[in-house]
């Protein structure tokens, strides 16, 4: 028996918005400690890792581990049926093939429930290596989304160059070149501050398409954290208030030096 109650259905909606364009279907692994989702996109270039801790839910019960393979398009249809401030409850029996969503309107007048068929998805469990990142940038997620949106117009890749002073995002394409420099804020405490923890300068290039998809999660959190090291995947992390996080991993582009 699995049951999880979330005060704000809007959170779930936003989470889905943040992943549905990268993944078409995914397995939600429900354990005692919470709900995890980890999946690569079709082309295996990026990876989504979602973690919702048990204590973040209003009530959470998971007697036995349940893996729920869901079609995210279908999930989207169901979540369309609730408003952002509904209370949502997810229920599933052990080894069940359906999951039930119950939406209770905040004024208690309306209760709706939806069953969704589950799928059996082949799941690769991938270990993400723990890495000490050479550079960790924290910045407002709105700012990040804007930079990505602006530079995506120029080229297919965006280069992140991190130095002590700040981060430079740049992109080159047919129409020309775009550069956005975001400097480290002087006041560290401010909510809108950009902070950079740097061990060594890093320059990496990423596909703007994926970055654009990651930026869709900026509604989840006001802050975004970018972790980079040479030749390892970029980690873009959005904290979901008090309940968990969604992390994106993106393989950097590399110079094609064999000339093939």
């Amino acid at each position: 028996m699995f049951e999880a109650k979330l005060q704000q259905a809007g959170t779930l909606k936003k989470i889905l918005d943040a992943i549905k364009e990268l993944l078409t279907e995914a397995t939600f692994d429900c354990t005692d400690s919470g709900i995890q989702l980890q999946a690569m996109d079709n082309s295996h270039v990026s990876l989504v890792s979602l973690n919702l801790r048990a204590d973040g839910f209003e009530t959470y019960r998971c007697d036995r581990n349940v893996s729920m393979g869901m079609n995210l398009t279908s999930l989207g249809k169901i979540l369309k049926c609730c408003s952002a401030d509904d209370v949502v409850t997810m229920k599933a029996q052990d080894a069940a093939d359906i999951v039930t969503f119950v939406f209770e309107a905040s004024n208690q007048e309306r209760v709706s429930d939806f069953d969704m068929k589950l799928m059996n998805l082949d799941q690769e469990h991938l270990g993400i290596p723990e890495t000490d990142y050479a550079c960790v940038v924290k910045m407002p997620s709105a700012e990040f989304a804007r930079v990505i949106r602006d530079l995506s117009q120029f080229g297919e890749s965006i280069t992140f160059s991190c130095s002590k002073a700040g981060v430079k995002f740049s992109s080159t394409g047919d129409i020309g070149t775009g550069n956005v420099k975001v400097a480290q804020s002087s006041s560290v405490d401010s909510k809108d501050a950009t902070t950079i923890e740097l061990q060594e300068p890093v320059t990496l290039t990423f596909a703007s398409r994926y970055l654009g998809l990651f930026a869709k999660a900026s509604g989840l959190s006001e802050r975004v954290q970018l972790s980079m090291s040479p030749e390892v995947p970029l980690v873009v992390e959005f904290k979901i208030n008090d309940i968990g996080y969604v992390r994106y991993y993106l393989a950097p582009k590399i110079e094609d030096d064999d000339g093939n």
């Binding site: 990876l47 890749s157 393989a251 582009k253």
Partner: peptide
Amino acid sequence: QMDKLKQPTLDSFLLSN
């Protein structure tokens, strides 16, 4: 391919089980 930059997959980065 003409693009000098190659997009590798995550497979090679991940400690896949």
